[in-house]
Design a protein around this nucleic acid. Structure first.
Lengths: 345, 345
DNA sequence: GCGACGATTTGGATCGGTCTAAATCGCGAG
DNA sequence: CTCGCGATTTAGACCGATCCAAATCGTCGC
């Protein structure tokens, strides 16, 4: 009979206990570095742990302790550098706090989001950070997650829920960009790109309009141009700005991707962004600093937002607070060379 | 006595069993949609599950079944769009297969990588996909992970290990780029950027040199310029290409970031990339298509690589294969406008 | 020499599921 | 009416840790 090669059984707590001639409870205490065990047995056990290559089974421990050391992170679009950087920040801070990140990405599909969440919560995370897919149904999410799970919503408001919310200061950022253009002398300013369906777009439009109103400038509805928040779509929509005379001399763009697309569209029409047309972005993606011309934009520091989100969910898990908390993250205008004074007529 | 408000205890399997007047085993069978239970009780139980808002505790189940439904994904640099896209592909494919992704990012630090891995394996993932941090010690990782864990290494070779490995066809990609430049008429071609410490850089250099040798062109050592794989570093190193006369008329760059940096450096020196100097990148990051000029580069489709990595680790977990397997992913040359013929002297 | 007391150690129940083997049910055949 | 058999259902051990209450140990005071 050929000798059967069995995979060496995993080393568990009792193996260590037996090898040391102590009880499981004692080994367990050593693992959690309890002060109860004597220095002598502690060393004995620790030596054996190393010798046998023991790995702690956190799932088993968590089962008994009814606790959890993981946090779910659900991202609408990981391939967007903004969210990737956010995720990196979250993971960095969670790891530092001893948590593990359960990742889920939804590709902006509420259906996938539902499935992903259903799967993630079965793993019993201590909390959830979610950047909702566009078109998410808050009520439906509430029902799925229950009132118990600690949740932090990032970036997009989720109406019908009472969870903590970390928002960017969209209105203020757009206002800063608009004021900068006004200060340069522009009087005909467009708002370009984004879907009004998304709350972030509505907020940025609001800030834009408030800044115009504060400067007593008119808001021309045909200069509020929608487009998908992608470079390609934005480039295709550039013409919409010049459909009528007079045309705007500057545009506040929904985000950097849209701004870069608009730049392409302008160049294609013989315009020269930063020379005869001024435009601003939003996000300050790494690319923004190195385009030609470098893009004036509103920086939001996504990695820092990630760390902040981690801190907020940990605070919520610690559970001191009771009422849901809204946090607004500051933004900063980065002035580069895509913004110039209007051409003299 | 004031009525104590207790958080509603989580609904567990026995709650359902009691409410239905059946045993735990029966409920368990329903949960796993076993054909053993009668249609009648199945419906009864399923109704109760929904009514009470039961959520499955996968950790408990996995404990008994000695199985796992999570896979760890360790990434050296999530803020790099290439890896972010890769991660998105992995997560997409894993989710489709019913797995959950445990994320860890290391920021290129072997120490962090060690800590992250130690923490992740305690959660008992069924397998691990790792894109190693630069300077990882394969032997050390082997010791940490043991011989049992299914592992797929991505992108960077890990010497001293016997794990599955998914590599990009670096040599071939660099050769394609080099051949393209030669076909355009270039005779003095540099290899720019990257650290020779990294295996991907060595492989790309190799392909570059083979293509030169095949065309019977000399390899000039002073035209092999190192730099950190970042835009800024690359821009700073641009001068090294023109230190001596004659200078190269074209460069194969280690990756897109380096190529974009070199473009900046060239412009700063009064050169005009795509007009009087040709250069190629590697990766085809989204930005490459929209720079001025658009960058000729080698596309590797990171999202598809992510899906492929997921498929490979799942196959390894299924365990049919025995010997470690090396997979080389194809690459594709994307010809854009950063490559031009050499200037006529 | 004995009971007390602080310092350690430990048996056994427990977390929430799954597995196995055995019990129970319903019904048609003999 | 009883037996046999397939279809369902179930009791109880089990996964690998933690927790609690109780046991054990050494030694110190009287």
């Amino acid at each position: 009979m050929p000798s059967r090669v069995t995979a060496p059984r995993k080393v568990i707590l009792v193996d260590i206990a037996q090898a040391c001639g102590v009880s499981r409870a004692t080994v367990s205490l050593v693992l959690r570095s309890s002060p109860l065990v004597s220095a002598q047995t502690r060393e004995l056990v620790q030596g054996e742990l190393k010798r046998q290559g023991y790995v702690y089974n956190r799932a088993a421990a968590n089962l008994r302790r009814r606790s959890s050391t993981s946090i779910a992170l659900v991202i609408n679009d990981l391939s967007n550098p903004f969210f990737a950087e956010f995720a990196a920040g979250v993971d960095e801070a969670l790891a530092a706090a001893g948590y593990v990140t359960l990742l889920g990405s939804t590709g902006e599909s509420p259906e996938r989001q539902h499935a992903v969440l259903a799967s993630l919560i079965e793993h019993g995370p201590a909390g959830l950070i979610i950047s909702p897919a566009e078109g998410s149904d808050g009520t439906r999410l509430s029902r799925l997650l229950g009132a118990e799970t600690p949740v932090l919503v990032f970036n997009r408001e989720l109406v019908g829920t009472s969870w903590d919310f970390l928002a960017l200061d969209n209105a203020h950022g757009a206002a800063l960009a608009t004021e900068h253009l006004i200060a340069l002398g522009h009087r005909r300013i467009a708002f370009f790109g984004g879907h009004v369906g998304s709350s972030s777009c509505r907020q940025r439009r609001l800030g834009f309009q408030q800044a115009l109103a504060a400067a007593k400038l008119p808001i021309e509805p045909s200069w509020m141009v929608e487009s998908a928040p992608t470079r390609l779509e934005a480039a295709a929509q550039a013409g919409a700005l010049f459909a009528r005379d007079p045309a705007p001399t500057a545009a506040v763009c929904y985000n950097d991707a849209v701004a870069l697309g608009l730049m392409l569209g302008l160049v294609a029409r013989g315009r020269s962004p930063g020379k005869d047309f001024a435009l601003t972005g939003f996000d300050d993606i790494p690319e923004a600093a190195v385009t030609t011309p470098p893009l004036t934009t509103v920086a939001v520091d996504p990695r820092a937002r990630g760390r902040q989100a981690a801190a907020l969910i940990l605070a919520r898990i610690a559970g001191s607070r009771r009422t849901p908390k809204n946090t607004v993250a500051p933004v900063q205008l980065m002035i580069r060379h895509s913004t110039c004074p209007p051409p003299v007529v």
